[in-house]
Structures are given as structure tokens and as C-alpha cells.
Design a protein around this nucleic acid. Sequence first.
DNA 1: CACCCGATTATCT
DNA 2: GATAATCGGGTGT
Length: 202
Amino acid sequence: MNNLLRKLLDDRLAQDFFTRETTKVAHDLLGKLLVSYHNKILLVGKIVETEAYRSDDPASHTYRGKTERNSTMFGPIGHAYVYINYGIHYGFNVVARDENFPAGGVLIRAVEPLEGIEVMKKNRHSASDASLKNLTNGPGKLTQAFGITKVDDHLDLLTSSKIFLAKNSIYPHENYTIEKSSRIGISKAREYLWRFYIKKLS
DNA sequence: CACCCGATTATCT
DNA sequence: GATAATCGGGTGT
């Protein structure tokens, strides 16, 4: 268990990964790992769906400039931007942008549970169906399963071990293609195909 | 399985 | 005062 955590920390994604054009980072995060180590509990999920939100994008929280809520996305690259959505759910993003944009982030929309599945099920107590499929297949679901809340807004994912992102050199690599589409749940900029997801090949 | 709708509140206008 | 980067339960096919 401790060896696993050490290995994951060795594989952590660094600042240069996130200091690139936001849609490129969103694309390349697919297949990477979302890791949380908190209260001696290790949770790991493979990222299978993301969305890019750039500051020149009418659908982004940052489109109309800096406010108290969105200030994280104008701040240091690699930090976590956690926002409350629909009054009920949390959304988890990582700040990512190149020098052409003052703000930007990638929303992690879905992961596949790999480690700590029983804890995730417990965290998702409200789920009537605690099956693997319904555990972390949505932005509000994965934050609930991982215990990510508003207190994690602004957390530095480049140095924190509570939450970080890592490449996958541990778990089996499956064959898949990367698909893109319009983003979910937005009314503006529907023509931007900035949602990326993994489609498994059988 | 597809669609529809209510819940619930921070944030912005 | 309206909207929202969602979810889960319900209804109907």
C-alpha cells in the first residue's frame, strides 16, 4: 500500500504538463490517474472524460473576468479549482493554460475506480445503485466518491499528496480511442468540441 | 432505455 | 431575480 503510494507520487504530473494549451491538456489527461491520499486512505481512479474551459470561451466561468469564485483559474497552474454547481454538487478542475490565456481549467468529468472502491461506495451513500458503473461516472459523483469539497479549492496538485494527478505506469493499459464532442450541460459555445472521452475498443 | 423533472443554493446581474 | 460545467428518481415505451 505504501509502496503503491510512493510509486504514484513518483509518477505525479508536473507543472510543464499543465502549462500547455488548455484543450490539449484536457485531451492528454485521458488515461491518467486521479489520486487522493487522506486519513491513510488511498483512492485512485483512471480519468476517462474531461472538458476544457478557456478564458476566451463564453461557457467558461472566467469569460467575464476575474471574480471571487473563479479566481483560482487565474492563479498558479496545477492548482485545483473546485466550484459548487446547481447548489448541490462539486466540480473538480485543474488549472491549465499556456501563456496566451490569463485563465483556464480542465474539468474532470468521469473516472474509473481502481483503488479504494469500498470507501468510494461509502462516500456515495446516497446512491441507490452503488455499482461500479454509477460510482464515479459524472463530475458530481466523482467529487463525492473522492470526498473533494470546497476546502480543496486552490489546493496545489503539484505538491499536495491529498489530491494529485499521475501518469499510469501501474495498471493495465487498455485499447481505446479518444472521441470529442460538445460539452455537457452548457448553453453557450455548443459548437466547441471541447469534451474528450475514452471509447474502449473491444 | 429514453426522456422529464424537481432538488437546492452560490454566484452574478 | 435568474441561472447553473448535475444527479437521481419517476414514468412511459
